[in-house]
Each structure stands twice: as C-alpha cells, then as structure tokens.
Design a protein around this nucleic acid. Structure first.
Length: 888
RNA sequence: GGGCGGGUAGCUCAGUUGGGAGAGCAUCGGCCUUACAAGCCGAGGGUCACAGGUUCAAGCCCUGUUCCGCCUACCA
C-alpha cells in the first residue's frame, strides 16, 4: 500500500471493528497443526458462560493476548485455546431465576426438561462473554472454542472419574460437608467464604440425670443442641473429675446423654465442656465416631428443622429455631449467660447464604497422593510459578490439602457415571450406562443423580480441550502448554487441580509457566463488586477511550506482586499516548513515500544513528521484559521510547533535514531511518496496541498484508546492523544537554520563545567542538537561537546567562533582557544544589575504607563524578561573581 | 492462630545480583513553534513507615516494632 494521509485525531471505534474482522477472515489467529515452527500454547481460563466481562477478565485476556501476539511475531506456532465453563451452580441459578419470572420452577419441569432449557439458554446467551473478549482484541483460535459440557470434554470427565474410582482415589461416604440450604447442594471447603461476624456465646446448663447441679457448656449455634448426643470434657480437667459415671439431661429434649472424655476439648475455652452434635459439626463428627455416638440430624437440607428436632421445632427455619430454643432455655432457667462473641462464619461463595455443616453422603477425591506429585513438579522446576512468592502459597495449600467433595446436588453439570442396581443395590461405575447388573443381572439400574463440581471438569481443561482421551496431534504439538495466565484467586480452585490432574493423566505438567497476575481493584483499592457499586465496566472504558488505550493501561500497571487500582483517568493518560503515536505516524507519513532502504552508516547523521541505537536498546528491553512476564516494564520502555526519544528528540532534530535544508542525500537518509523506526516501533507496540498499529501499518509504504504476519525487529534479517552505538549516544547526549541548558535559561529567565537569542559554547575539547559545530543547526532550531557559535574558552560575552554542561560552558547572550539579580539567583540555586551532591561524593573519597575496599570501577566512577562537579562548581562560581560585578 | 504481600513526591506506583531516588497524573510559570493544546518548553516537590544491625556503602540484606491489605484455619 502507498502512503496515505492520516486524519488529525485517532478514532478507535471504527478502526477496531474493521481490523478484528480482517484478522478473523484471514485466519491469523489459527494455530497450525502441521508446521515445523516452535510451538507456543496457552489455554484461556474459561470464563463462566453466565459471565459478563469484568476488569479481571480484561487484564487476564490482555496479558495473554500480548504474549500470544508477541510469540507469533517471534515466529512461533501459537495456539491460544479459548472456551467457556458451564459453571454448574451459577448457571443453574441464572436459569432458575429466569424461569421464576415466568412462573416456572425446575421441580415442576423435571430434570430432563430443565437441562434442556439450560442448553437453550446457553445457545441464546452463552456467547455474550466471548463477543466481549473479542472487543478486547483477543486473538484466540476461535475455531477451536470449547465448552466444558461439550461431548468430548464430557468424555474426558467420565474417563477421569472412572479411572480415579478404579484406582481407589474417588470414594463415596457419609461425612460432614458444607451445605448451602439455598442452593441445596454440598460445597467443597474452598467454596465456603469465611467472614468474621458478631455473634454470641451462649452458656447453657445441662443438668445431671441423677444428682443436683449440672455441666455448663458454651455454644454459638444453640439450635444444634437438639441433636446433641454427648457432652465432652478434657480427661485432664480437674473440674470434671468426680462426674465420671454421670449422665446428663439434654434440656428441652429431655434425652439422657453421656458425659465423655476427649483430649480434643480445650480446657481454657468457655467452661471446658463441649456439647457434641455429630451430625452438624466436623469435630463433633470425629469425636462421635471415636466414642460410638449416634448422629441425629436436626437441620434439614432446606435449612429448616427436621422431625428429629422435636415437634416443637419441626419445620422452623434454623435461625428462628435458635431464638425459640433460647427462649425455652431461659424459661427453664438453664441459660446461664450470653457473651458477645466474634467468630468467622462460612458463607456460600455463590449466593452468600450461611453454610450449614451437615452430615451427608457425598463423593470425594482423595487428593493427597495427587498433591504429592504436584508439589514435586513445582519443587523441581517442571512448572515455574511467577512471581515466586506464589510458590510458597501453593506449597502451603498443597501440603495441608484435604479430600475434595466433588458431588453437587444440582442438575446442570456432568452427572456422575455411577449406577445402582435397584434389585441388589450393587453400584457400578463406568464410562457408559450398563445394561445389566454385573452381580445379579438385573436390568434396572439407576444413575447417581448428583453432578460433579464444575472445577472437576475445569481441572482437565489443558488436555480435555485438545482432544484427550484420544491421542491427538494437537496434544502432541501443544501439551504441556507454555504458560498459564491467571489471577491468584483461583490458584487453588483451578491451577492446583489442573496440576494434579495433568500430571496424573498426562504424565506431564499442564504448563511450564504459571504467571499469576494481580487483582484489579477500584480507585481506593477496594475489590470491585456489584453490591458496592464501584464496578468499572471494561466495555464502557473501551467505548470512551478505545481498546488500545485500555490495554496499554492494563499492561502498564501490571507490575508483579501488586494489585491494580483502576480509574478512568489513567486510561485517559494512555489514550493520549495512542494519539501521540498516531500523530508521530501522521508526521512520518507526510515525509516518506517509499519503503525502508538500508543506508550506509557513514551517510547517517548522529540523530539518525542515535535513534537507531535507542531502537535497538528498546527492542532488547522489550524482549527481556516480556520473556520475564514484566509487562509493565515492556510498556514503560515503549512509552518512553516513542514519546521522549522518538517524538521529543528525533523528530524535532530531523525536521530541518526532512525539509531539505541539508541536501537531498541527507534527506533521503533521514526519510529512510524515519520509516524504519516507525515500522519497527509499530511491531514492538503491536502486542500491546493491536488496532492502531495495524491501522498505521496499512498506510505505511513498503508493508504487505497484516502487521501480524511480519517479523519481530530483533529477528529481522537486518537486525545484525542494529547495535548499541556508543559514539552516537554520547554525541547526542551532548547536543541534548546543550539544548536543555539553553531552554532552562529561557524558562527560568522568563524569555518568550518567540524571542531569538544568541548563544556561544566555549570548550577546549576538540571532539565537543567538532560535534557542536556539525550540529549547530539542530541546537539553533531546538533551543530557539538566532546564532550559535563554538569557540575556545576566552572572553565571555557581556550580559550573558550561563549554562555549564560537561566539558563546555554555554553563554546565552541577553543584551537588553538580562535581569542580573535573577541570573545571580539562578546560578546560586544551581551552586547550592551541586554543593549537596559534591559533599556526599567528597565524603566518600575521604573515606580510606571506601578507597581500599570498594571495587576499583566504583571508586573511579566516584572520582570522575567529583572531578566533574568541581569543574562545574568553579565555573558557576566565577560566572556568578561576574554577574554580581556587572550588577553593582 | 498460621502464612503472604505492602508502607518511596500531593495522588497512583516503578525501582531485578547493595554503589547517581525515578515515572505518570496533579501543581506552578511560559507558549496555538507548519505531526499532535489529547500538544510543546521549563520548574518546584521525597528523614524511601519507625528503631536497631551487617557493610567502605542500605529504598534494596538481617532483626524487632507499628500500620494496612489479602489468603488460610475445626477453640465450641
């Protein structure tokens, strides 16, 4: 394509839609199944089908997209596997709510029809989140999109379940689990959110059966007393020495229960006596087992009291029941006292209802053996967790891992592949429904109604999405995946479980790197939540500022180990950056008309060589930063390069050349360098800002096709010519410091930019003289001078302000405008500033220990600095004296 | 209770083997200079939470204190 003019401002919205469609049509996101390139793969953390895009997704997906686009440019065959998660409880809740509005409920509908309705819901709304990911520019291989309930993934789930069952790692049994009375399902320990609440500690007297007095227990959930089957005290507790054979009367219920001894009881807590309710507390359950106590379930699965709670309470809500029990106890005079007590209470992570520990028959995975291998894989470096601090968190959890309750009493999900024979009660676990009972031959087998925890299927995601249990080419090419990018909030839920399953079933870790990124919070650092009303919608941000600005903001703030506080103001700042790039391109395109042509180094000016050297350094820094997942550093480097090196200095410095004032040869060279730098800059920026870079790319002469198909600057055939150019760097720094010195005088002395000044530089250094003479034009242009001369140290111009730079003194002649007092103040200020620095440096050089113990190069550096400071100070001082003379 | 992270400019934060305290935004002053006022030029501003220690040298390493945040846990 040829050179075209750009509009004055960048308009993101129209551009974005156009290029996204273009990429999809050209299938630039597709992984190749038959090429010899190195593989790079990432599986997306599948968002809930019910989800709407939030800041967490935006950050997560942006970082993955940066990696994938970067790796493609580096020549990798990239697979970014997308998809969604069926989110059992959440989805079921959503569909049930919708049904409720239509006056329907799932029980009336029946299981089969309900599940069908969920599928319909998914067909209609399930792609919402996917479309939102596309707005972010996500370059996933959409043709391979997966869903955890797909046939293939479901087969993987069944296979894993059956294998683990046969290996004895999945078992079924009756234990205390976390029960959500609202969702009416069991929850895994992880799915319970603990929150500190103000409660009470109720002291209740349990009278002795056969003598006066009684034992006082302390309880936070007095309603559970209805299911007590014992009271326990510590065997060493002196207070309860003489009560050995005693039985107690359970108040209200009037049941006789034993007083037992168990070391578990803490003598220092409460009264040292603990009521035992084996059906409603995990400890009590263990103690009950050890002492062969019976379990009485008094709170039902609906959160209401059961018949076993007694006629008085049956059908009562558990919290209403608490009040009624307390009232009854008070009437009997058995409620000794009530103390306020702060304790943590478990809530359902889906609906925030207070969770009830309940005795229930469920399915569990025995995870310890799996965890052992998953710990080893991180210990020996097969998988790296970045930043490293998360490794300790991972180990901490893995080392203390408990069996995982995987059965859920809901309908939407993978139904457990276990069947029970109605005739002989034999249970069969298998991939498919058995026709006959293997024991009695009966043909009436009923499938387990429970479904599996959604995370059970998510745990298989890195290989189930690639076709496992079939041996596919995809698995061979892309497993183990290269990196997993995720938030720490699902480190245990998901990452740890994928590690366990991946190692167990694939014989290899699911990913080589796990990059754990921060959480996006609001401006005040609070977690964004709908209830707090502090949510910033990523789509709104995109509408207002454009995707590129938003993505760049996320990357720039994605420093390792710290949460991101998001505010629209920050995005606005980076929109300015997008616009800056746009205008730099606009300027460039006004001057170049052909593609880049290699120009011999000798034909290049110092600014040309300097910007190429900066480009080289920037490229290396970006590569280094991205390879280490330091996104903020890569973004910061690019920002600085584009704005403060390319725009602020290079473009300004080459303007005279571009206008032809240096002759056609120089002009040609400058144009060529300009084009080259812009082209490489676009490629470097593309992973961060895919849309604007693609848009400019197509206007750039000499480019073909999409920017996605090009080669990264460091891999380009011409890359060998890109070197750090020490000479150019130091000469350009000299020029910059001269200009800055003069500008400083102008600013401090309040001289209008429109007023031309005359300046002269004095130096003994021939090389400096050479450089300044050669680039006097640039100095004149950028410092706003009428004339700029270079000479030997000698007669100082009258009425001049002074700038001291390393190796030279600049005099800015200010005939008629000079304010002597002001100049004296300015010089004094500089001398004072320098004095502080000089003191610290001198102190070091007077220190014998420093001179003898510090490395030679460090000492030399300090000596050099000292020399420079002294020289500068002397010059400033003599100029100050002169100004004072003139002023008097 | 255990674990982890953080305290650096007015705000938000960088600071990767210990050797010149930085950026963006905000503030102040000056500019519509032919890519960009979404811009340009210049300036001010910090006991690096506190107290010790190691070292020639500490924002960085060690110990303690304090404040904030998060994760995790079965003292009823």
């Amino acid at each position: 394509m040829g050179s075209e003019a750009l509009d004055k401002g960048y308009e993101p919205l129209t551009v974005e839609a156009r290029w996204y469609n273009y990429w999809e049509e050209k299938q630039l996101f597709a992984a190749c199944e038959e090429n010899g390139k190195r593989s790079y793969s990432i599986v997306i953390p599948p968002p809930n089908v019910t989800g709407v895009l939030h800041m967490g997704h935006a950050l997560n997906v942006t970082l993955q997209d940066i990696l994938c686009r970067y790796k493609r440019l580096r020549g990798y065959n990239v697979l970014w596997m997308p998809g969604t998660d069926h989110a059992g409880i959440a989805t079921q809740n959503v569909v049930e709510k919708k049904m409720a509005q239509e006056g329907l409920d799932r029980h009336r509908l029946g299981r089969e029809k309900f599940v069908q309705a969920v599928w319909e819901w998914r067909r209609e709304y399930g792609s919402a989140i996917i479309n939102q990911l596309k707005r972010l520019g996500a370059s996933c291989d959409w043709a391979r999109e997966r869903f955890t309930m797909d046939e293939g993934l479901s087969k993987a789930v069944r296979k894993v379940f059956v294998d683990l069952y046969n290996e004895g790692l999945i078992y079924r049994g009756s234990y205390i689990i976390n029960w959500c009375p609202r969702c009416r399902t069991a929850l895994a320990d992880l799915e319970v959110e603990h929150e500190e609440l103000e409660g009470n500690l109720y002291y209740i007297r349990y009278p002795f059966a056969k003598k006066k007095g009684g034992v006082v227990i302390a309880a936070t959930r007095p309603e559970t007393m209805l299911g007590d089957t014992a009271v326990a005290v510590n065997p060493d507790d002196e207070r309860y020495r003489n009560t050995e054979a005693d039985m107690l009367i359970l108040p209200i219920v009037d049941r006789e229960i034993p007083l037992i001894r168990d070391k578990y009881v803490d003598m220092l807590f409460g009264t040292g006596a603990l009521k035992i309710t084996p059906a409603h507390d995990p400890h009590d359950f263990e103690i009950g087992r050890a002492h062969h106590l019976s379990s009485i379930k008094v709170i039902g699965d609906d959160g209401k009291m059961t018949a076993d709670a007694g006629a008085l309470f049956e059908g009562l809500d558990r919290f209403k029941c608490r009040e009624k029990v307390l009232k009854a106890l008070e009437e009997k005079g058995l409620l000794e006292k009530i103390e306020p007590y702060r304790h943590s209470v478990g809530h359902c992570y889906r609906c925030k209802t207070i969770v009830e520990p309940n005795l229930s028959t469920q399915w569990f995975v025995s995870v310890k053996p799996l965890a052992k291998k998953a710990i080893a894989a991180v210990k020996n470096g097969d998988t790296r967790i970045i930043p490293g601090m998360w490794e300790s968190t991972y180990f901490e959890w893995m080392n203390n891992i408990k069996d995982w309750c995987i059965s859920r009493q809901i309908w939407w999900g993978h139904q457990i592949p276990a069947w029970t024979c109605e005739r002989c009660n034999e249970m069969v676990v298998g991939m498919e429904a058995p026709d006959n009972c293997p024991v009695c031959g009966g043909d009436r087998l009923v499938q387990e109604s429970d479904v599996l925890d959604t995370w059970f299927s998510s745990a298989l995601w890195p290989f189930s999405t690639m076709g496992w249990p079939d041996e596919t080419l995809l698995l061979r090419l892309f497993y183990p995946t290269s990196a997993l990018v995720t938030g720490f909030d699902i480190l245990f839920f998901w990452v740890a479980r994928m590690m366990m399953m991946g190692i167990h079933f694939m014989g290899d870790v699911p990913f080589k790197d796990v990059y754990v990124h921060a959480l996006v919070r609001d401006e005040e650092g609070k977690k964004m939540s709908k209830s707090k009303g502090n949510v910033i919608d990523p789509l709104t941000v995109i509408e207002s500022y454009g995707t590129d600005a938003f993505r760049f903001t996320l990357a720039a703030f994605a420093a390792q180990g710290r949460d991101i506080k998001m505010s629209e103001k920050r995005v606005e700042g980076y929109r300015h950056f997008v616009n800056k790039l746009w205008n730099a391109a606009r300027f460039t395109l006004m001057h170049i008309s052909e593609g880049y042509e290699e120009i011999p180094r000798n034909d290049l000016s110092i600014p040309d060589r300097w910007i190429l050297s900066r480009l080289k350094e920037t490229t290396s820094n970006v590569v280094e930063a991205l390879d280490a997942y330091r996104f903020n550093e890569a973004a910061g480097t690019l920002y600085k390069f584009v704005w403060h090196e390319f725009c602020d200095w290079y473009l300004e410095a080459v303007k005279p050349t571009l206008y032809g004032r240096k002759g056609p040869d120089r002009q040609k060279a400058a144009k060529s360098v300009l084009g080259r730098v812009l082209r490489d800059t676009l490629v470097l920026l593309h992973p961060f800002m895919p849309f604007v870079t693609e848009e400019i790319w197509h206007k750039l002469p000499g480019t073909k096709g999409s920017i996605m198909e090009t080669v990264f600057p460091s891999d380009h055939p011409g890359a060998a010519l890109m070197v750090y150019d020490e000479e150019a760097e130091s000469e350009m720094n000299l020029i910059i410091s001269v200009i800055t010195g003069i500008r400083n005088i102008r600013g401090e002395m309040n001289i209008a930019p429109s007023r031309s000044l005359n300046a002269t530089a004095q130096t003994k250094d021939e090389a400096i003289k050479e450089t300044l003479n050669r680039y006097a034009e640039i100095v004149k242009d950028l410092a706003g001078l009428q004339s700029f001369s270079v000479g030997e140290p000698g007669e100082r111009p009258k009425s001049a302000a002074t700038a001291i730079i390393e190796g030279a003194t600049i005099f800015v002649s200010m005939e008629g405008v000079i304010d002597f007092a002001r100049e004296a103040d300015r010089l004094q200020k500089e001398i004072d500033k320098l004095g502080g620095e000089l003191r610290t440096v001198s102190k070091k050089l007077r220190n014998e220990d420093f001179l003898s113990k510090a490395p030679a190069d460090v000492v030399e550096k300090v000596r050099e600095k000292h020399r420079v400071f002294i020289e500068k100070q002397q010059k400033l001082q003599s100029n100050l004296e002169r100004i004072r003379e003139l002023n008097s």
